[in-house]
Design a protein around this nucleic acid. Sequence first.
DNA 1: CTGACTGCAAACGTTTTGCACGGTA
DNA 2: TACCGTGCAAAACGTTTGCAGTCAG
Lengths: 135, 135
Amino acid sequence: MEDFTALLKKHNLKVTPQRLKIITMLHAHGHINIEDLFSEIREEFPNVSLATIYKNIHQMTESGLVREVKIPSLKSVYEVAKEPHLHMVCDKCHKVEDIVLDTDKIIEEAEKVSGYKIEESFITLRGICPECRHK
Amino acid sequence: MEDFTALLKKHNLKVTPQRLKIITMLHAHGHINIEDLFSEIREEFPNVSLATIYKNIHQMTESGLVREVKIPSLKSVYEVAKEPHLHMVCDKCHKVEDIVLDTDKIIEEAEKVSGYKIEESFITLRGICPECRHK
DNA sequence: CTGACTGCAAACGTTTTGCACGGTA
DNA sequence: TACCGTGCAAAACGTTTGCAGTCAG
């Protein structure tokens, strides 16, 4: 995905420089929290308001363009919505990575055990990343 | 588990009426957020302070007696720490339930794919509970 | 041209802190 | 008794809101 202008239009959001920058940052970082997002955007738009960041992140989240990811013991981070995936968090360097895995088995099992009709799954795995292990 | 006095002592926390009440509430509800916890405890201890709730929840979380559970689109809830389990959240009635499931397969698969050494997993499944489905 | 978006400032809700008093061990 | 825990009030945070000016469509 490269054309963020089209992405905004697809979600019925007007294309503004601030919004393009937000999506570009989310895409570049993979995952980023509000505070870091704000200070990075400030470098290019010194007058950008924190309120603008919040308003836009909420609009984008509601329109389905962006997703909030809640991770234990970390601030919420945001990502551009894409195919379902798991989150890996490193205990040492605190980076967040996506991995794609087939979760059908466990969902099916959970439905059987609980009687729920499951709509969505949120899986976060905590541990040590390969880079930190080899230090 | 019934003896909350012993549980507190085991975690090197002094036994106070407020702390006993907090654990009793967590245990009774399974999962509860700070706001609800506060108002329920107020019924028995009208002068209890919100600061006391926060301080104690933090201490209990740090000592490993209590766990925070972050759930998408809900406030954080807290639970008495117990064996590893998944969380089921109902989209309609918003209740949170625990289920115990074998997650070894998916953890193993994730370790293989990512190269991480996984220490802990956080799995939340969103859907409709049996009670809400049959209405 | 019109409605939506932005930046600013104020308001708001939640969580944390400092301190004097009281209770546990 | 010594320290830790409690309640209260104030402060600190993070997030939201209202509004006047500006910009995208």
